[in-house]
Each structure stands twice: as C-alpha cells, then as structure tokens.
Amino acid sequence: MFEARVAQAEILKKILDSVRELVEQGNLDCSGTGISLQAMDSSHVSLVALLLKSEGFERYRCDRSINLGINMQSLGKIVKTAGNHDAITLSSEDKGDVLGLMFESTEQDKVSNYEIKLMDVDAEQLAIPVAEYSVCVRMPSAEFARITRDLSTIGDSVLISCTKDGVQFSTTGDTGSGSIVLRQSSSVDDEKKAVVIEVQEPISLSFATKFLVQFSKSAALNESVTLNLGDGVPLMVEYPMKEMGYVRFYLAPKLSN
C-alpha cells in the first residue's frame, strides 16, 4: 500500500507545472524515504530529477517500493482541478493498476476522487554521479526567467561565462546579439534577492536556449535558483523546495566542433 498526503495542493500543482512540458511520461519511484522521478526529454539532452521526501508529506506510508508509470499531462490536468488549499492524498495498491487521488477541501465539505490508469513506462534510468562544480551561481528565480526569455528572442544558444566578477549570459542570432551581466550583490537585505557567485575556476559553456527557458518556468517553486556549472559535466539547475525536496534539471552543453 502506498499513500501520501500533502496538506495543500498548490505545491503539487507547481511541481507538475514545472516538469510536464519537458516530460511526457515517467515512473514515480515510491519508497519508504519518499517519491522520486527521473526523466529525460525526448531528445535526451535534458533530464528532470524530482525528489519529494517522505517527511515533506503530512502523512506518508509506503509498505514496499513501487514504480508508478504516469502520463504527466494527465496527472497535471487532474491535479489542476484541485483547489490550491485542498489536501491531496495519492494512493495505490501494491499490485494496483491505478493511482488514486483524493482532494479534500479545507472545510471538509467537498471530497473529490479520481483515478489515473498506470502505464508501463520504459524509461532509461541514468546514474547521475556526484559532480564537482567549478561555479555555483545563486540568483532570484524570476531574474533567471527574465534573462532566458529576453535572450531567447535573439539566439538559440546561450553562453554562460562566469568569473569572480560576475556571470554573463550572451547569445548571437541572425538578427544580432545580446548579453546580460549580473554582478554579485554587495549588500542585500533580502537574501532571496541576492546574486551570490562562488567560483573555483572561471568557466564558459553554451546551452540550448529553449531548455533554459523551460527550466526557468519553475520559478514558482522557489524565489531563488542555483546554476551549477563544471567542465565535462552537464549544467545542473536546482529549485529547492524547503523540507519537501527539490526539482533539479540537468542539461548537456553545446560544444564547438
């Protein structure tokens, strides 16, 4: 038996919104420690790694580990019908063929029950090694969204160059070029609004703009985002979710021939 209850539907809505455009279907791996999902986009260039820790749920029970193959679009559509403050309980029998969803309003005067058919998802599981990153940039997630959106009007690749002085995002396209530099915040009252740049080694790497734009749509998950870059490893973009876990995106670079 698997059962997981979140106090407020809002967080699940935000999580599903952030992954469902990138990932059509995936396996929710449910175990005693929580729920995880690892899925690549269809071109195998980017990967979503989601972790929802058991302690982040109001109630959590998973007697034996199970894989729930889910169409993320279908799940997203159903969860969207819940009120933001509704409690949501996910459930599945050990050998069941459906994922049950129960929404309960805060007043307990409305209860909705849905079932989604499970599917066989033949997803390749990749082993993600723990990487040593040369650069870690923490910045407001809204700023990251703005920068990727603004540069996407010009070019399909963004070069991210980072030194101790700042991080530069630049692009070139048929119509011209553009670049945006962010400098480390000198003094900030609100830590969430700070730009913090940690540099072991300066680095410059190119990435496909369209994926950065996709990732940056997760801004609702956290006011801050971290970009982790290293030579010979994919970019890792992380949106932490307090006690709940995280959504991480990995993106392979574009290399010059």
Partner: peptide, 14 residues
Amino acid sequence: VCRQIQLKQYFGQE
C-alpha cells in the same frame, strides 16, 4: 558552429 551533446555521454546507465 555548436554541436549539442547528449546526456548519455556524461551519465552512465543504471
């Protein structure tokens, strides 16, 4: 000219 690398070149299969 840039070439898009795939993730498999970095991450092994489990």
